[in-house]
Amino acid sequence: MQMRLLTWIKKHALFCLGTFLLLLLLAITFAGPYLPFVDRELTTITYILNEDKKPVIPPYPPSEEYIFGTDKSGRDLLSLIILGAKETILLVACITVLRYALAIPLSYLAHKKWMGTHLFLKWLNGLLSYIPTIIIVMLLAMLPPFLLSDYRPFFLLLIIALAEMPRAADMIKLEFDQISSKEYIYGGIAGGASPYRLFRIYYLPFLYSKLLVNMVTDLGKVMFLLGQLGFAGIFISQDFVQSMSGDWQLVNKSISWPMMMIKAFEDIRGPIWIPFFSAFAMTYAILTFNIFADGLKSFFTRKIRYI
């Protein structure tokens, strides 16, 4: 029994490593806040007296007391990252699910060449293969109707999901095109299945494994994009507040990881550990998603090969 388990693990080493890292990430996200060394209150510190009884104001560099250092209001960075994980992961997952929920129907319509959808998709992909996604997202996210709306976070989620949606749709469309030449599809058509039924029962089940792999890969890509947007000063959960001079200002209220990069361009010349550790957390998440995606891929392809 033990031998069989070992050989199974050896055979799917990548998959096991990916699962382990993913479980670790999820454990940090959901159970992490209850660890003893995590400061759930995120207490702020005004100053600390040093040996010469001189007050030193935060941020403090990484030390034994604060492993990751503190931010500018003296909050422990490690606790901040662990507490912010839930929001970050949730955002990334939401965007990815939304993206594929939109991409799958669109790709099927494009495959069926319904009302010129395929041309539209081709044009969108052309546009996106020229213009960097981050520029498009920035341009759309700064539009007043989205900026001033009460549902701004939702709109931003939608914009980010839409920005890379055509690429995903194009990839799924290729799969549809491939499947459509298979014999059993003709069987379905001859049997009188409606287009919707064909889609649900004849096409989709063969795509589940590929969709899953691509969605997990996209989790990493979305995290990367959120990081880039964080550097560009665009966040999902921001409040828009009018200041005394009549100007509008973006105000933070969240503790997600990209948010810690808001002052990255100043921090990088001083307390560089603030952007470093938030970027490190993102890198860990991206690495986990990529390893898990590759593990899943090899898991599925092996399964198919041995049938």
Binding site: G227, I272, W273, A279, T283, N290
Partner: peptide
Amino acid sequence: WMFSSIPDFFLFIAIQY
């Protein structure tokens, strides 16, 4: 494979740090 998972902004900050 490992290094291609590292985002460029992290690489940059890490080198500077």
